[in-house]
Design a protein around this nucleic acid. Structure first.
Lengths: 217, 217
DNA sequence: GTCTATAGCTGGATAGAC
DNA sequence: GTCTATCCAGCTATAGAC
């Protein structure tokens, strides 16, 4: 990989972190990369394409970094703990989630939408495989919509990252509340142990009685 | 209220919805408001101040609109249903959450941060009062961190709004999964009825045994 | 591959006539 | 309060020398 290309990828991330998606221009990116501005177009064709490539590379790296920790997670509480560490690291790295900025920018830029969705999907896949492990063997696990839950967890985290930027104390409170909530999982599991079979059939019935959500595209 | 001021507030929202926070410039806003560009500075002083005022007014209106529905909510499932309606309406209104765009912009603009946090707080307060009603009398309600949970729900919703913009089908899946999850609430309540006192003490013990999250600032 | 230079816009903000 | 006109900084993108 040509060193310039790599510098531009890094510079794009720096620019997003320091100026947000709105301020990630050819000039700020080139300055952050310490590279001539015109080289962005030579190597990537457009700003959008550079941002997309940078976001994908950055996300892939971070998913890999956390993949091992996630593979050791054996409860919702532990998953939350990993989320907390990830959140702390994001804050240290520059107080902004690159993915959240791209998501915001993608709302009104069609060329950014698909690459951003693809980057987010990397996290979703990772979370889904954690859920697979956690839910196997539990009463709820037999009927749980794991892809849906994985998406819910991932996008909720994005929202939290954005919230952190405007209310740090509030974000801490969210983590405290989720921590508390995660204890309910164990309690439900305990209760389940009391009459596991009854619980299982109750869950199946309750969940299935609702209008089936037909997959749609 | 001078009609021009109101037109500018509306125009700012239109511009955010159509172009995102990055494209909400004096010129696009003035065009959407059908008002001379220089009047933004006469009436509001700066773009940031206009955006802040518009965001606050818009959020206050929408909170009021949904306040009655929220006051009738008597279960998590119903709360989710209101969330779904709100989400559908946002989509119809222009496929973008104004608050989410402001939140993204506020990450790197200090003058936007506090007003955005204040607007978001309007939703958080509303959700918190719903939680107060829902949790009163339940075993978990006695120890639940309601302000924290209200924030968690609110910011998760913001994340979902952003996700919708890049993956519509994925967002639908999230709602389906949450719907499914919301049935667990009833099941847990049922189980609780079996041995309510045992459950209550179990929850209290479990939740309190963790490191107390000291309020911090 | 990298540079300078520049075209052609759009940005926030202000001055000053009315 | 509203308008025109304008300053100047910043923007994306390209042309063309090296």
């Amino acid at each position: 990989m040509s060193s310039t290309k790599q510098r531009l990828l890094d510079g794009a991330l720096t620019a997003i972190r320091e100026h947000g998606i709105a301020g990630a221009s050819a000039r700020t990116i080139a300055a952050a990369a310490d590279v001539n501005q015109a080289l962005i177009f030579y190597h990537f064709g457009s700003i959008d394409d550079l941002l997309s490539a940078a976001c994908h590379a950055c996300t892939a790296t971070r998913v890999k970094e956390y993949s091992k920790q996630l593979s050791n997670v054996s409860s919702m509480r532990e998953l939350l703990q990993v989320g907390r560490e990830l959140h702390e690291q994001e804050k240290t790295l520059g107080n902004v989630s690159v993915l959240a900025q791209l998501l915001a920018g993608a709302q009104n830029d069609d060329r950014l939408a698909a690459p951003t969705a693809a980057a987010l999907q990397l996290w979703i896949n990772e979370i889904e495989s954690v859920l697979d492990r956690l839910l196997n063997g539990t009463p709820f696990g037999e009927v749980a919509d794991r892809p849906g839950l994985a998406r819910a967890i991932s996008v909720a985290f994005i929202g939290l990252e954005l919230y952190e930027g405007v209310d740090e104390a509030g974000a801490r409170q969210v983590f405290a509340a989720l921590d508390q909530l995660s204890y309910l999982e164990e309690i439900v599991n305990d209760l389940g142990r009391i009459s596991r079979r009854a619980l299982r059939s109750k869950i199946s019935r309750a969940v299935r009685k609702k209008t089936p959500s037909r997959p749609h595209s």
